[in-house]
Design a protein around this nucleic acid. Structure first.
Lengths: 136, 136
DNA sequence: CTATTAATAGTAATGATTACGATTCACTCC
DNA sequence: GGAGTGAATCGTAATCATTACTATTAATAG
């Protein structure tokens, strides 16, 4: 997912093109890992010191719902990144220092006999944590 | 892990036997899934209405450090459960309604070729979410 | 250009968790 | 069993991330 595609999706859903949204998308497009909502906000303040929490969280949530961003909870904070390859299921290694990610192409649900009679499976989470080469 | 073993561990580390700790352990021993820290606190208040946050969180954190409890973050809340089988690595299905868990004996790290050259792996998280038979 | 409606700013409220000084209590040693 | 000592707790305030709300601003359609 890139900025252009993101705007296509937004237009399809009649979302307006605003400076804040442009800044969020451009910022996250540059990064190749997860970024905390608050850190996205910090970046927005450079161009727009008065940006409000409402704006930051509302847009990030909207983008995640539209599959423009991926979302995860990392030690109590909500973190976002550009959606890798929409429609293709995948997982991530996440650097606990810088948030940078690496793709893990396979999924445990395909490899493990998760034998759960009677339960209704709704989702799953698989993340590998550690330090990337740059952060060691 | 049961209450008795927990007390052995606590004694080994010179922790004192208090009413609050007894209540936490007995409460969690009865449950077979994850419980939010706040809900543990609610239970403590039945016997001890004035129990403080400090007491609740400090003890839960201590117990988790001693591997008496297992800990996870579930939609922004810290959740705890008795440690299943200390020393034996495992994962869980977690009911999103009641928090009840089911064991998943295998681990994705054994089955998936996580090909991550240069990274230092520190940990991983694998959880399956859904509704247990009782909550459907 | 104007209307209309979404988007935002500014700020207050919430909810979970952490922090801390003063007090109480569990355990040790006599 | 009773005093002494440090751990544990209480009561409460502070913090941090997130949510909520109202008045104002601005993006797009016509």
């Amino acid at each position: 997912m890139n900025v252009e595609k993101a705007w296509e999706t937004l237009k399809e859903h009649s979302f307006k093109r605003t400076k804040n949204r442009e800044a969020i998308l451009e910022f996250l497009a540059e990064r190749d890992g997860y970024t905390a909502a608050m850190d996205v906000g910090e970046f927005l303040k450079k161009d727009n010191p008065g940006v409000s929490f409402d704006t930051i969280y509302r847009n990030l949530t909207t983008f995640a719902e539209l599959d423009i961003l991926e979302e995860t909870d990392l030690n109590g904070e909500r973190q976002y990144r550009m959606h890798c390859d929409p429609g293709v299921h995948h997982h991530h290694f996440i650097c606990t220092v810088c948030g940078k990610t690496k793709h893990i192409p396979s999924c445990p649900m395909d490899h493990i006999a998760v034998n759960l009679p009677g339960v209704e499976i709704q989702g799953h989470k698989f993340e590998v944590y550690g330090k990337c080469p740059q952060c060691q």
